[in-house]
């Protein structure tokens, strides 16, 4: 049996604004190591909300969450920060980069934070990641001078800097043309096959979803398929 990368049991979350209503209803989920999973569903069905919980950023939920076989529910914020830094790469739906820094620095910062490699090594590695997405020419450009698609590719490069066990993307290809979507998809696939990294990606791209290993379909805060 394949190793479990992420296991969620009975995840339930409520929003209280304007009235208390359940956004996520008793979600059970298991993702194996090296699996490429797409999450699809109508806008507003709770995909982003679920992803924030799975990524340990949101701690306000009921249920249990295990990452790499370790229970993370109820851990302190500082412990969770370390887990995110070392084992989870995240690509956001809207806000991407730190505008005061160059693209290269943006990619490097989580690596420097982790501190496992020297500055030079992190720099080298960041440069390679940028190259994989064809944005190495922009390395020294300030992040706020990039187009949306360029920003998104730099953001994906950043999520990979610490070789995380799990990469989560909230519509990681939402701003990309079909060619670049293809590049990102192929790369994600290679990461799962060759490096046994796990990908969980929310997507509205039918094609993208179809090509992944497994599709999880959500509706109204529930996993329907």
């Amino acid at each position: 049996m394949a190793e479990i990368a992420l296991k969620a049991g009975g995840i339930t979350k409520y929003f209280h604004d304007p009235v208390t209503f359940p956004v996520l209803k008793n979600i059970d989920l298991e993702v194996s190591r090296g699996e490429f999973v797409s999450i699809v569903g109508k806008s507003g069905c709770g995909k982003s909300t679920l992803l924030y919980i799975l990524s340990t950023m949101d701690t306000d939920y009921e249920g249990k969450l295990e990452i790499n076989g370790v229970n993370v529910t109820g851990k302190s914020l500082n412990e969770l920060a370390f887990i995110r830094n070392s084992s989870i790469g995240f690509v956001f739906q809207f806000h991407y980069l730190l505008p005061d820094f160059s693209c290269l620095k943006n990619v490097m910062i989580p690596g420097l934070r982790l501190g496992r490699l020297s500055y030079k090594e992190v720099e080298q590695k960041a440069y390679e990641k940028l190259k994989m997405f064809g944005v190495e020419d922009l390395a020294l450009k300030s992040a706020n001078k990039l187009s949306g698609g360029q920003q998104q590719r730099v953001a994906i490069a950043r999520s990979l800097i610490n070789d995380p066990a799990i990469i989560m993307g909230d519509e990681p290809t939402g701003n990309l043309d079909s060619k670049n979507t293809g590049i990102v998809f192929d790369l994600f696939q290679r990461l799962t096959k060759e490096y046994h990294q796990t990908i969980i990606a929310v997507t509205h791209d039918e094609d993208f979803a179809q090509k992944s290993d497994r599709i999880i379909e959500m509706a109204d805060g529930e996993v329907v398929k």
Partner: peptide, 16 residues
């Protein structure tokens, strides 16, 4: 504030 949120999301702890 958005950048602080990104830093925290990418693993910067409160003390950092």
């Amino acid at each position: 504030i958005k950048e602080i949120a990104i830093l925290k999301a990418t693993g910067f702890s409160g003390p950092a």
